[in-house]
């Protein structure tokens, strides 16, 4: 038996508004903007009710619209334009922060950025609301050029191939952007969550 879903716009606010704002806050750490994007999602869903397929759930359908709005938000900033050039020009200044030449290696961790063990007590609390407010702060430290890619990979778990295609970036630039974002994110959490 096929269960057909129906839309119930009268209850959208009650059912989804806080959830959607929280989800959006993970990716855009600005409450005003997050709220506006969620508002925009509901209103454009209303005017596109005819695009709803009854086999889909209401929530999944709304989430697709929400995700598209967030992608649009980043796309409007046109941050991915000239990504290759940006990566090239900033390579030296970026990596010398993290790695330096020593007797054994061309690029070994600098003392300051070298990962040390994380405290288990703090690690256990990494699924808490407190952790995610630190995470948001750290997300802001990732340069705009890299952030959308990091979010697509780590928060939305979109397949790398798809991200490259959608954003017209090469696979090698993609992995460079992920590499840099990870270095920044890890180090920021190190300082601000683990206080090392």
């Amino acid at each position: 038996m096929v269960v057909l879903n129906v839309l119930d716009p009268k209850n959208w606010i009650d059912k989804y508004s806080d959830y959607f704002v929280s989800l959006t806050m993970l990716k855009i750490s600005n409450k005003e903007i997050a709220q506006d994007i969620v508002q925009d999602t509901f209103l454009s869903a209303l005017t596109n009710i005819s695009s709803f397929r009854e086999e889909a759930s209401e929530k999944t359908w709304l989430l697709t619209i929400l995700n598209n709005k967030i992608i649009d938000y980043y796309r409007k900033k046109d941050v991915l334009k000239n990504a290759a050039k940006y990566l090239n020009e900033t390579a030296d200044s970026f990596y010398t922060n993290f790695f330096k030449k020593n007797n054994y290696s061309e690029a070994h961790w600098t003392t300051e950025k070298m990962p040390i063990n994380w405290m288990p007590e703090q690690e256990a609390k990494m699924n808490s609301v407190e952790f995610f407010s630190v995470f948001s702060v750290c997300l802001k430290k990732i340069p705009e050029k890299l952030k959308a890619i990091f979010i697509a990979k780590y928060i939305d778990e979109i397949d790398p191939k798809e991200i490259c295609k959608e954003n017209e970036i090469s696979s090698s630039n993609y992995w460079t952007m992920i590499h840099r974002s990870k270095l920044i994110m890890r180090e920021c959490l190190d300082k601000n969550w683990f206080n090392t």
């Binding site: 606010i13 806080d18 929280s22 993970l26 990962p115 040390i116 990494m126 780590y154 928060i155």
Partner: peptide
Amino acid sequence: RFEKQLQKIRTSILEFKNKLEENPPHRMS
């Protein structure tokens, strides 16, 4: 450690996302 810690960050994001719906930390005004 770098690898292990990044894995931990990844699973934390997943766990957190999964409980966002039940316990949204932010509220719309």
